[in-house]
Design a protein around this nucleic acid. Structure first.
Lengths: 121, 121
DNA sequence: AACAATCTGTAGAATTTTCTGCACGTCCTC
DNA sequence: GAGGACGTGCAGAAAATTCTACAGATTGTT
């Protein structure tokens, strides 16, 4: 469903953050130097795959995400969990908790935050 | 560092689980039908990239992981966090806690588990 | 109208990923 | 030692990904 190549993800990331941009603007936000035409080939593919929509505005086309950031995140996290945690998020949680070395207090605070729907992630 | 294509990851996953296998065995564990030679081209690439080692045993070569499962997991999780959580694991934690809808008791149990080093993930 | 700046479309090259076919080598059995 | 089962190596095809080059369209300015 929501599988992206590295380049495609770079584009989506920028559009998720900024909402609606034309190619030259995306190019400016790109995390590495990239030629305008190279960038546009990403856009064309993402359009074809249905992950982006665009509309004409002034002289240029403006692109915006059609695939939601949140659902992409869930899909990718799910794959990671499948591959490395045998499908259970528990092991992932466990790993994160260990890595973050959270105190009981911080943990409870997190839990409180987590129970306020919805997360704006 | 530890970037894998989809196919490479399928191979690594099997070898992480089983330790040391010859091509025909990996082929049998593969999650989809794949020809022996197609599989071997993955092995050759993974060898070149240094993610696998192999040794001759009997008539065949046996392959085993050189890149550790745990470090790959950390790297991929890190990328995910960078892309979707602005680099902080907190948001990821928050998301997981919300999704898992854990009770305070379960949470504390998880925390207890997490503080027993090391996780065998 | 002429010009520059900016944007589009398209054709295709280079590279990587994924897969196929086939020739040859080794081991076992008859 | 002939044949079959099973393995390797390699050459390269097919498809996807990433990138380049260029021709032409649109907008704004003089």
């Amino acid at each position: 469903m929501a599988r992206f190549t590295a380049g495609e993800l770079e584009v989506m990331r920028i559009l998720w953050e900024h909402g609606e941009l034309k190619p030259a603007e995306i190019q400016r936000h790109f995390p590495r130097p990239i030629k305008n035409a190279a960038l546009r080939s990403y856009l064309t593919i993402l359009l074809q795959k249905g992950h982006l929509a665009r509309r004409s505005k002034g002289k240029a086309f403006y692109y915006r995400p059609k695939t939601r950031r949140e659902s992409t995140f869930r899909a990718m996290l799910g794959e990671l969990v499948d591959t490395f945690c045998g499908g259970s998020s528990e092991a992932l949680l466990c790993h994160l908790l260990a890595k973050e070395k959270l105190s009981t207090e911080e943990l409870l605070e997190l839990q409180r935050m987590a129970q306020q729907p919805p997360t704006s992630l």
